[in-house]
Computed example of a mutant assay.
Amino acid sequence: MTEQEDKGDTGREAGKGDKAARVAALRPAYQDDLAAGTDRFFTARRTDCPWCGADRLTPRLRTPDLLQHKPGHFTLDRCADCGHTFQNPQLTEEGLEFYYRDFYDGLGEQRMSGTFGGRTAMYEGRAEAMLPYDPTPKTWLDVGTGHGHFCAAARSVLPGTSFDGLDFTDGVELAAREGRVDHAYRGAFPALAPELAARYDVVSMFHYLEHSTDPDRELRAAHEAVRPGGHLLIEVPDPESRYARLLGRWWLPWLQPQHLHFMPVANLRRRLTELGFTVVAEQHAEPHDPVDLLAAVWLALDHTAPREDAPWLPERPGPLSRGLRATLLLAGVPALITATLLDRFALRPLSHRLGLSNAYRLVARRD
């Protein structure tokens, strides 16, 4: 073994040891949270649709947390009148804090930063969607910016644009320190909207609305922040995608328990018109992220395999459990490779034609 390889192995072992120590340090607080049960994490179940008020609700999906594997089961109901799908019962503020904790920050920060930081082409495509309608925006606010990776990538498309970011996590402050955003706003968008009134040529919400407890409030805040004649750019999962039906709980964009609302495109178009926007573009093929089959195979493998160590488990899994997990995941590699090839090369060119696009994008001008 070379000296460089030896240092690499030492670094990996140190990294594993550091994570184990962090998990052990967090375990008492998680166990205290769970000792009181999970009922307090949920509101009362609704009997009417939060979008249109109709009372004809049907269950669409029931699933555990397939990503972090935190305790709890989550139900999505669909309105038979307008097609809106929503988490019911919905998480409380305490529940949102519990299930978001250590996903985008804390234990999950490095993983999420690597995931989002490696998607430059996708971010540039989002910025390019604005070019036919405003090729030289001066000010842009990215709502739900996370660590600001979109803003950093979009500068290559729009070098003359000033990009600000807004989020309720400390990731937006990290984005400002790293120079990915020019100004960081931390907090809830509806609360901050009055001070941002008519300030921006463009406001973007990329995979943000589905996380909000009240999408209508967020849309009204966007109308306030966009200047007259400016644009709102929205991208959300498409609940009408055929993948949503074919893959069931294994469809990644369901992302329970974080995603609270799923709006069919007709509903969102209608609401934007009512608020005083004109929808100038609707895209389905362009925002499609070709990962559905890969993600489904991974979620199924990860769900079947023994759990990896996490602070919400009562104790660290033993060597036998860890060995079984590694063996099963290794056996699943051929399926993961096959799913990747199908996603990227066989199905991606046909995704819109087959109704498989997993997201849609709207560009709307404020009248």
Score class of each variant (00 low, 15 high):
P290A: 14
L294D: 04
R322T: 15
R269V: 13
A285R: 09
L328Y: 14
P314H: 03
R270E: 12
E282H: 12
L313S: 08
L293P: 15
P306C: 09
E282L: 04
V297F: 13
V279Q: 03
D302Y: 15
W312R: 08
E308A: 15
G323P: 15
H284G: 02
S321Q: 13
A300W: 15
R270I: 07
L268E: 06
L272T: 03
E286L: 12
A331N: 00
H303G: 13
E315D: 13
L313Y: 03
A300M: 13
L329C: 05
P319D: 03
A310C: 14
H288Y: 12
P319T: 07
H288R: 12
A331L: 02
T327I: 00
R269I: 04
P319G: 03
E308K: 07
Q283V: 00
T304K: 06
R322I: 08
T327Y: 00
L301D: 13
P317N: 02
E282D: 03
A326W: 04
G323E: 05
A295F: 07
L301A: 10
R307L: 09
A305Q: 08
R271H: 11
D309K: 01
P314D: 11
T327N: 02
R269W: 07
L268M: 10
A310S: 11
A296E: 09
L324A: 09
P319H: 06
E308Q: 05
W298K: 15
L275G: 02
T278A: 15
D302P: 06
G276T: 08
R269M: 08
R269Y: 11
A305G: 12
G276I: 05
G332W: 14
V279W: 14
E308T: 11
P287W: 02
D292M: 12
A295G: 14
Q283P: 12
G332D: 04
E315T: 12
R307G: 01
L328T: 02
L328W: 08
A296R: 11
P306I: 07
R307N: 10
A326G: 06
R316H: 08
R322S: 10
D309N: 11
V279Y: 15
V280R: 09
H303I: 00
E274K: 13
L301P: 08
L272R: 04
D309I: 00
A296N: 07
R325E: 05
G323R: 14
A285N: 01
Q283N: 12
A285T: 08
L272H: 09
E308P: 01
E315I: 05
E308G: 10
H288Q: 04
V279I: 07
R270V: 03
L329A: 08
P306G: 15
R271I: 06
P290H: 09
F277P: 02
T304Q: 07
P311H: 15
E286Q: 06
A281G: 14
P319L: 00
P287C: 07
A285E: 03
W298P: 00
E308H: 05
P319I: 05
P290S: 09
R270F: 03
L294I: 08
P290E: 12
G332N: 02
R322C: 00
H288C: 05
D292G: 08
R307F: 09
G332A: 01
W298L: 05
E274P: 11
R316C: 06
P306W: 12
R271V: 01
E315M: 04
L330W: 10
L293W: 11
A326H: 02
W298G: 03
A300N: 14
A295S: 15
A281T: 05
L328E: 07
V279E: 13
L324Q: 10
